[in-house]
């Protein structure tokens, strides 16, 4: 193991390490801790410039109910879910199929199609912006949740295909060959042999895509406008404009917006990291 395990070092180093850990963590998360503390401050504290000291009063309930009562933040959150969940399902469904096809079958265009997905996943959003907005307008889906979700499904299919294809490639191919010898049709092989083995990959992708789409801001501003359709990221931006210097409200809003992906991450940590670190180990 590298660096040297701390248990094997001198006692002084061990103690230093145990002290350094929480100190480093506090410094690292300082901006977030400050936001969390601010979100329970009273307006009086903010006006008095007490941003960083201990709050004089705790306004946890007041601030959080205030943002839900006085702003459409609940609607924004709901919109985020309405966009994110179908995208997770759609992108995972499409890419289990594309990944299966590219991993299992040998045909001429295989690598070319695979590279199309990989390359497309890396292009700058701006090169897609004008035509995609135009297409969405023409389909009558501009400023609708399905319009935004459809684009996300298509775009995420690139990354998901890369992920699924490499995952299936690492499965023992003998399983598929054995099934073929038994005369099992290709579709049944996909459904009964391969799909059950893909559960960990599906879980990993689902949490990753959830986070990516929840946190998307660019496409939300390009394809939607107004509180009826905008997800929380874009909503937070416009609320920030209304809440000039009301930092306790901005902070509470930020915490609410960050909560779902954070919960998702903590609940599904292992899958999340397995997904992100794909390819980091040979």
């Amino acid at each position: 193991m590298f660096p040297t395990p701390i248990e094997k070092t001198a006692p002084a180093t061990r103690i230093a390490y145990k002290v350094a850990l929480p100190v480093a963590l506090t410094l690292w998360l300082l901006p977030l801790i400050a936001v969390a503390l601010t979100s329970v401050r009273s307006a009086g504290d903010i006006n008095a410039g007490n941003y960083w000291g201990w709050p004089t009063e705790f306004h946890l309930l007041e601030n959080y109910t205030a943002i839900f009562e006085n702003t459409p933040i609940g609607q924004y959150i709901l919109n985020s879910f309405k966009v994110t969940i179908p995208v997770v399902i759609g992108a995972v469904a499409l890419s289990t199929m594309t990944g299966f096809a590219l991993a299992v079958y040998k045909f001429k265009a295989n690598l070319l199609i695979f590279f199309m997905f990989v390359a497309g996943n890396f292009v700058p959003f701006q090169i897609l912006m004008v035509p995609v907005r135009d297409l969405t307008l023409q389909m009558g889906m501009y400023n609708t949740i399905p319009g935004l979700a459809l684009f996300h499904i298509a775009f995420q299919t690139g990354f998901c295909t890369l992920f699924m294809r490499n995952f299936i490639k690492a499965l023992p191919f003998e399983l598929i060959e054995a099934a073929r010898v038994e005369g099992v049709s290709e579709i049944r092989i996909f459904w009964y042999v391969v799909l059950p083995l893909m559960k960990p990959a599906i879980a990993a992708l689902a949490v990753l895509i959830f986070t990516f789409i929840w946190n998307d801001y660019f496409w939300a501003t390009v394809l939607t406008q107004g509180a009826d359709t905008q997800p929380i990221t874009a909503g937070l931006y416009s609320l920030n404009g209304q809440w000039v210097a009301a930092w306790h409200l901005v902070s509470a809003g930020a915490i609410v917006a960050a909560l779902p992906p954070v919960l998702m991450f903590f609940l599904m940590q292992r899958h999340f990291i397995a997904g992100l670190t794909l390819g980091a180990v040979k």
Binding site: L94, S95, M97, T98, F100, A101, L102, V104, Y105, F107, N110, I113, M116, F117, G120, V123, L128, V132, L135, L150, F151, I153, A154, F155, T157, G158, T161, E186, I187, F190
Partner: peptide
């Protein structure tokens, strides 16, 4: 079979990305 599995994904990706 590969084309059957690829068709929906490729169609979406062509329309919205490529």
């Amino acid at each position: 079979a590969p084309w059957l599995f690829l068709a929906p994904g490729i169609a979406m990706f062509l329309i919205y990305v490529i």
